[in-house]
Design a protein around this nucleic acid. Structure first.
Length: 426
DNA sequence: TCTGGGGTCCTAGGACCC
DNA sequence: TCTGGGGTCCTAGGACCC
C-alpha cells in the first residue's frame, strides 16, 4: 500500500488585531500597541513591544493602565468589522496555495500541503508568507507538521524564529523541540488538563508524547488521547475544508454601566435577539430553542451574585425576529429580580437547522407566515443597504449605544474610501 | 470604579422503551 | 408490588478553542 504522509501547515497572523490597526496607521509600527475587547474591558491583542512590557493576554485594562500610560502604549478599542474584512482577504489569498484549507479562526488557517515535496516545504511556506504580507500587509507565522497538533506546535516555535517558519517534518530533532514546549502550550491542553498532567510529572509536549496511550485514555478522555496520538504523528483530527453552518448562535454583551431595571434589560435582550435572528436568517436557518441569560458581575465577591438562564422551546422552529423577541422577553421576565446590579445579558438560539430541511408547519396559517417571511427579508435588505439598525423594532431602544464603552476606536471602515491607506511609491 | 464574546465537542445521567 | 438487563435519545454542564 502506498503510504502518503500528511503535511499540514498552520498559518497564524502575528498579533492580528494590532497588525490590522497598523495597516491604517503606520506611525504605530514598532511601537507598543494593544487592542481591547468590547467595552474596553480586557487586552486581547498585543504587539511584540507590548508583550515585552509584561502586558498579559486577557488582562483587564484597568490593571495594566499604569504600565500603558507610563510607556505610552497605543490603545485601540476593537473594530471587528475591520478585522473580519482583512481576515477574508487573507483567507482568499491562502486559498491560492492550497484548495484544501480549513479556516480555523479569524486569524488562523490549516493548509494541506501534502502535494509539496518535503524538500520544498520551507520555501513554499516562505512564498505563502511573502504573498500574504505583500497582498494584505499582515505578517504571519507558519508551522508545518504531519498532524494538526504538530503543526500547531511547530507554529509555536515559528513565532520565535526570525524566518517566521518552522518545519517539523524535515527536522531531525523533533523530540528536542517538543521538549521545549510547555505542556500548557500544547493545543488541546487547557487549564484542567495542565493541572492533571503536571501533578503526574508531565511538563512538556515531549513527555506527553511518550506517555502510554492506555493510561491517558483511562485518566482523561478521548480528547486527551487524541492530542497525545497526534504528538506521536498519528493523525486523529482531520482537516475540515468545508465550513459547516453553526449549530448555536449567541449574542451577548457586558454593560458599560451596571443595569438594574427590567426596562433596560428588555432593551438589551431585544437588541441581541434581533442581531441573532438576523444572523441565522443570513445563513438560512431556523431555531428550535431560545435561551436568555442575565448575570451580575462575578468579580465583586462581597456583593450578592445572581445568574440565571431560561430556555424556551419554540412550538414551531423559526427565525422570525418578532416571534423570537416575544419569546425571549417572556423568558427574561421569568428570571429578572429587581434587587441586583446586572453586568451582562445575552441570548442563545440553538437547535439551528437549515430552513429547507423542514417543510412549512402544517398547522400554521400559510398566508400570515409568508407575509412575515417577506417582512423579515425587507428588514434585512434595508439594514444591509442603509446600515445596521436602520430598521429595528421599538423595544430595542435608541439609547442603548450609550451604554457601551468604546473610547479608543480607530473608526476605520474598510467600506469607505476615506480610509484607504496611503501607499508611498518608490 | 473598571474584568470580552462566540463557538465546538464530550460525558454523565436521566427519561423512556422493550 | 416485586424483580433484570439492555438499549436509545436527550440535555446540562464542563472543558477546550480563538
Amino acid at each position: 500500500m502506498l503510504y502518503r504522509k500528511n503535511k499540514i501547515a498552520l498559518v497564524d497572523c502575528n498579533s492580528f488585531y494590532v497588525s490590522c490597526e497598523r495597516l491604517f496607521n503606520p506611525s504605530i509600527i514598532k511601537k507598543p500597541v494593544v487592542v481591547l475587547s468590547s467595552n474596553d474591558g480586557c487586552v486581547i491583542s498585543r504587539s511584540t513591544e507590548a508583550k515585552i512590557l509584561d502586558i498579559k493576554m486577557g488582562e483587564p485594562y484597568f490593571k495594566v493602565e499604569k504600565i500603558i500610560k507610563k510607556n505610552n502604549v497605543k490603545v485601540f478599542s476593537s473594530n471587528y468589522s475591520l478585522y473580519g474584512d482583512i481576515s477574508r482577504r487573507i483567507m482568499k489569498t491562502l486559498k491560492q496555495f492550497s484548495p484544501q484549507i480549513e479556516i480555523y479562526s479569524i486569524d488562523e488557517a490549516f493548509l494541506n500541503l501534502s502535494s509539496i515535496k518535503d524538500e520544498d516545504l520551507f520555501e513554499h511556506g516562505n512564498k505563502i508568507r511573502r504573498t500574504v504580507l505583500k497582498w494584505t500587509g499582515i505578517p504571519t507565522s507558519i508551522g508545518i507538521g504531519t498532524t494538526k497538533t504538530l503543526s500547531k506546535a511547530a507554529n509555536h516555535i515559528a513565532k520565535k524564529e526570525k524566518s517566521g517558519i518552522f518545519d517539523l517534518i524535515n527536522s531531525e530533532q523533533i523530540d528536542k523541540f517538543l521538549a521545549e514546549i510547555k505542556i500548557n502550550d500544547v493545543w488541546g491542553v487547557g487549564r484542567q488538563l495542565t493541572k492533571f498532567y503536571i501533578k503526574n510529572g508531565i511538563n512538556t509536549a515531549y513527555q506527553l508524547k511518550n506517555m502510554n496511550n492506555g493510561w491517558i485514555k483511562k485518566n482523561t478522555n478521548v480528547f486527551g488521547s487524541r492530542t497525545a496520538m497526534e504528538l506521536k504523528g498519528v493523525s486523529c483530527i482531520s482537516l475540515e475544508p468545508y465550513q459547516e453552518k453553526r449549530k448555536n448562535c449567541c449574542v451577548s454583551r457586558s454593560f458599560g454601566k451596571k443595569v438594574t431595571t427590567l426596562e433596560e434589560l428588555k432593551e438589551s435582550i431585544t437588541s441581541h435577539c434581533l442581531n441573532a435572528a438576523e444572523k441565522i436568517r443570513i445563513d438560512n436557518q431556523t431555531a428550535k430553542k431560545v435561551t436568555v441569560f442575565i448575570r451580575t458581575s462575578p468579580f465583586q465577591k462581597d456583593k450578592n451574585y445572581y445568574a440565571n438562564t431560561k430556555d424556551i422551546d419554540l412550538p414551531i422552529r423559526t427565525n422570525d425576529s418578532i416571534e423570537l423577541v416575544k419569546q425571549s422577553l417572556n423568558a427574561l421576565k421569568s428570571i429578572y429580580k429587581k434587587e441586583y446590579r446586572y453586568q451582562k445579558a445575552g441570548i442563545i438560539l440553538s437547535g439551528l437547522k437549515d430552513v429547507n430541511i423542514y417543510r412549512k408547519n402544517l398547522f400554521s396559517k400559510i398566508n400570515s407566515e409568508e407575509k412575515r417571511t417577506r417582512l423579515m427579508k425587507a428588514i434585512d435588505h434595508t439594514n444591509i443597504k442603509y446600515g445596521r439598525h436602520a430598521l429595528s423594532i421599538a423595544q430595542a431602544g435608541l439609547k442603548k449605544k450609550l451604554n457601551i464603552k468604546k473610547q479608543h476606536s480607530s473608526k476605520i471602515d474598510t467600506a469607505c474610501f476615506d480610509f484607504l491607506p496611503n501607499v508611498k511609491t518608490a
